[in-house]
């Protein structure tokens, strides 16, 4: 996920969901690179017993309509996420520093996507 506002991960300290039940498969986050996509995007999450079956499940749940050419899965518990409460100190200082954004240049078409 690209911004802390869009949600938090189950397994982070910021959003404790308790321990999974013993009979429950771990949660995996799924990232898919689309046909013309440049990078993998987070598309959702699912449960699976291991990484291999997580990829198979991701294939079935998220790519049946030809969405992807590449799948990444990562166990949700392995993701470190910033905490939504720290939004202010982390991001607001950059709001008034427009010179940090390269908006004053005309980008030549030949450069392509940036």
């Amino acid at each position: 996920m690209s911004s802390p506002e869009s949600g938090s991960y189950d397994a982070t300290e910021a959003a404790p969901h308790g321990k999974p039940r013993a009979t429950e498969w771990p949660l995996w986050e799924v990232f898919i690179r689309g046909q013309h996509g440049l990078s993998h995007r987070h598309v959702g999450s699912l449960h699976a017993a291991d990484a291999e079956s997580a990829i198979k499940n991701a294939r079935d749940v998220y790519t049946r309509r030809n969405e992807g050419v590449s799948i990444w899965v990562v166990e949700a518990a392995a993701i470190a996420a910033s905490s939504p409460e720290e939004k202010g100190p982390l991001y607001e200082p950059s709001n008034d520093k427009v010179y940090r954004h390269p908006t004053f240049f005309d980008i030549p078409d030949d450069v392509g996507a940036m």
């Binding site: 498969w25 699912l46 449960h47 699976a48 198979k56 499940n57 079935d60 749940v61 049946r64």
Partner: peptide, 11 residues
């Protein structure tokens, strides 16, 4: 038994 298998079986 689980949602993921449900979808896989339907596929």
């Amino acid at each position: 038994p689980v949602l993921e298998e449900d979808i896989a079986l339907a596929n």
